[in-house]
Amino acid sequence: MSAVTGYRPSATLPIWAEVRRQASRRRTQLALGFMVLLPLIILVAFEFGGNNDDDGNGGGAFGSLVDLATSGGLNFALFCLAVSAGFLLVVVVALFCGDPVASEASWGSLRYLLAIPVPRVRLLAVKLVVALGYSLVALLTLATTGLLVGTLRYGWHPLGSTIAAAVPPGQGLLRLLGIVAYLAVIMLVVAGLAFLLSVLTDAALGAVGGAVLLWILSSILDQITALGSVRYLLPTHFSDAWLGLLSTPPQVDDLVKGAIAAICYATLFWSLAFWRFTRKDITS
């Protein structure tokens, strides 16, 4: 008998234990709370902002979405997602995925978990699953709150878009779910990057900030059309492809390419993270 009675490697660090570990943290509560708060803030802004929206920044990808945001609950939820997709969601996902390993390392509790022993692969897998779970919960919270608040205030109407005819509410809800799903897939890149950095560094802030910074860098490079086909390799190149779900019939070609890119990047980053973590000396 090698282990003590009652110890099973596969029973260590149960998912639920890790969920509670993270749930008790202030940053988790704040991030999830903000996902509820944001639609309310936007709603208040629309209510008090008046209708003078001719401030000259129309015409962008979101210009039409702003105009339509108050046309119904679906459009309101869509607007909430659209304004968050570029930065807020990235930060939140980077926070949930970049923080768990690095912060345990900085508190010094990581070595005690490993001495239990929680097998390193299991520790990383549980942390990753829970981090992804929290990221998804944040995304769903944002979408659900937006949908709920928007429907209560603006009613249950077809999903309108200026690039195609309005989509009936039932199908519109499916499209919205599709957009949420695509955003979730695209965010895998951020999740992968943040998680890898989390394993490489003891500074949680470094992991979160590094992932956000690299994401922004990729977005900037994507703006430079002179880079030509190199841009197709950037993880952010297809990050706006979910707009294709607003047209009729939905255009999924770019979504598929975006998903392929995101999954490739995430797999690469996670493989590196596991490879590194199972070999490194824990010195913190």
């Binding site: 090698s2 490697p9 508190w107 010094g108 005690y112 929680v118 097998p119």
Partner: peptide, 25 residues
């Protein structure tokens, strides 16, 4: 049993190494 990362035998060892490590919150 040979000690290596994640060896189940570690479950029979209690340790304090390099100071405490707790969740501050």
């Amino acid at each position: 049993h040979r000690l290596m990362p994640g060896a189940p035998i570690l479950s029979r060892v209690g340790a304090l190494v390099e100071g405490p490590g707790f969740l501050p919150h």
